[in-house]
Computed example of a mutant assay.
Amino acid sequence: MDFDLAAQSSDWLQNNQALLIDYCVNVISALLTLVIGILIARFVSNALNRVMVKKNVDGIVASFTSNMTKYLIIAFVVAASLSRIGIQTASLIAIIGAAGLAIGLALQGSLSNFAAGVLLIIFRPIKKGEFVEIAGVGGSVESVQIFTTVVITPDNKMVVVPNNNVLSNNIVNYTRTGQRRVDLVIGVSYSADLKKTREILEKVLSEDDRILKDPSWTIGVLALADSSVNFAVRPWAKSSDYWDVYFSLHENIKNALDEAGIEIPFPQRDVHLIQQ
């Protein structure tokens, strides 16, 4: 009986030898097509990214476009490889389409994030390196990916925000215009000479080269507060200089007022005691 099985197997191999060789050749060619296609996809993606960066295309657009190109090439290569070993891609596409519909219904949030990512790339309200406030998070934009946006906060934390949350909320871009107004409130004593105080404030601003001349700064009495006369000091600076100007102005104004003998008061209250 064992001899009969061996003989039948030998006969089957002899009769189907050409078919087996052809199938093995197709499998090997399909694997080669897949491997070479993936390498080509990576090469095209990297080359496209380098060209776009060299042409000064925004880093977010370059990254998103190159990644999408890579995935499209890989999808085409997978379909070609499956077709090579005899799998009907038309039927496969129909199955994938039906599965995609079910998956799409289950992953509505992910699809909305993908759509929001495409809109962010098209309209570009944010760019890589810009300091923005999105969905309650403030920081520098690191990248806009297929489903998420990556932000690096000033204290070097990485925050990943879903793209749909970015697009459905207000986007505050502090960098795009290139200029920011520095808003300071400086309080002086009620006994201080307001004209002299204004002159000192103007002198401090004029001595700082980082403060822009156009648009011009604004200095005015903001409020007669409980314990002080508050001046609004509002110069303009480049967005990149904002925090340096903000911190240094406080220090320089304090020193200048001290040298002029103008008091910066702390909150005070007059208490009247009634003795019975």
Rank of each mutant, 00 (worst) to 15 (best):
Q17C: 13
I122D: 03
G37N: 05
F131V: 13
A192N: 03
N165T: 08
A192K: 01
Y190T: 02
V245D: 00
F3H: 11
T69M: 10
S9Q: 12
L212I: 05
P125I: 07
D2Y: 10
E207Y: 04
I74E: 01
S63L: 09
A232F: 07
I126L: 13
N255L: 13
A192R: 00
I36D: 02
I200G: 01
V271Y: 09
Y190C: 04
A237H: 01
R180Q: 14
G59S: 12
I152Y: 03
L101A: 15
R198N: 10
G138P: 01
N252M: 05
T175F: 03
G100C: 07
D22S: 15
G129L: 09
I219K: 05
E199M: 09
T218M: 11
F266C: 06
A18F: 10
C24N: 14
E251P: 00
V51P: 02
N56P: 04
K157P: 04
S83Q: 12
V172C: 07
T177E: 14
L32W: 06
S83K: 08
I121Q: 09
V132D: 00
A115N: 06
V137W: 02
I253N: 00
N113V: 01
K196M: 10
I74C: 05
A223N: 15
Y190Q: 02
A99F: 13
I264T: 09
S189A: 15
K55Q: 14
I36S: 10
A47D: 06
G86W: 07
V204R: 00
L32I: 11
E263P: 04
